[in-house]
Each structure stands twice: as structure tokens, then as C-alpha cells.
Simulated scan of single mutants.
Amino acid sequence: MKKLQEDQLAVWRTFLNTHSTVIRLIEKDLLDQDQVPLIWYDVLVALYQTPSRKMRMSELADKVVLTPSVITRLVERLEKEGYVRRERTEEDRRGSYAVLTREGKRAFLKA
């Protein structure tokens, strides 16, 4: 891999700092407006944008850039809130889908 020059590293650091600032502002805005947390929103939007409104857990983890164990815990929390439900797959007894519920769609659209 090519060694990065100092000016390239400076641009990279600026990008990371800007990204972090924007994420914090979005999270604060959602919190101030009593909306779902940003990480929940990411899951809800991923499911909403899928035509079937459902996605295999592993695919969802990839889509929102989380590990399978983190997405499992997150979906459990969303399920408790009524925003998603889990559905077993027909083809693989170990796998499951995260399915967007009506309440989840409302929460996404409200946010």
C-alpha cells in the first residue's frame, strides 16, 4: 500500500472529524425531538428501503455496518418497542429475518 503524505492524512483527519461532528448533531437533533436514536433509524430506513420490508439479519448487519452480534441485540430492542419483528426463514432454520412493522414505519417516517 502506498504511504500517505502528510497533506493526505490531514484531509483524512478532517473528514473523520467532520463526520463525527455531523453524526453527533444528528443524534442530538433526534434526541431533542424525542425521536428514535440514530442507530435505530439506520435499521428502520434499511428495512423501509427494502421492497419486502424484511431482510435477513446478516444482510441487515452488513447494510448498517454492524457486527452480527450487535445487530441481534439491536433488533431485540427494536422488537421490544414494536418497531420490528423477527421471522424464521423457511430455507434455513438457524436464520431469521428482521421485518419492519407498521409502528416501525411510523417511527421511521416521523424521524
Rank of each mutant, 00 (worst) to 15 (best):
R24V: 08
L47K: 02
T14K: 07
T21K: 08
T18A: 08
D42R: 03
Q8A: 14
F108W: 14
K54A: 02
E91T: 14
M1L: 12
T21I: 09
Y48R: 06
E81M: 13
F108N: 09
L47C: 10
E27V: 11
Q49P: 06
A61V: 06
E87A: 13
D32C: 11
P51V: 10
A61H: 10
Y41H: 11
R13V: 06
I39T: 11
I39P: 05
R13E: 08
L78F: 00
G82Y: 13
E27W: 08
Q35N: 09
A111W: 13
R93D: 14
L25W: 09
W12G: 09
S20G: 01
I23A: 08
R73S: 15
Q8W: 09
V70N: 04
L60M: 03
K63M: 06
E76R: 12
P37A: 11
R102K: 02
L78I: 01
F108M: 09
E103W: 05
A98R: 00
H19N: 06
K28C: 10
Y97M: 01
I23E: 10
D34T: 15
R77K: 08
T67E: 14
R73L: 14
Y97W: 06
E81P: 09
E90S: 06
R94H: 15
E90N: 03
Y83M: 10
T50S: 03
G95D: 14
R86Y: 01
D92Y: 06
P68N: 15
S20R: 06
S58D: 12
L47G: 03
R93K: 15
S69C: 10
R77P: 02
D34L: 12
L109N: 02
E59I: 11
V36K: 05
L25Y: 08
V64D: 14
Q49L: 15
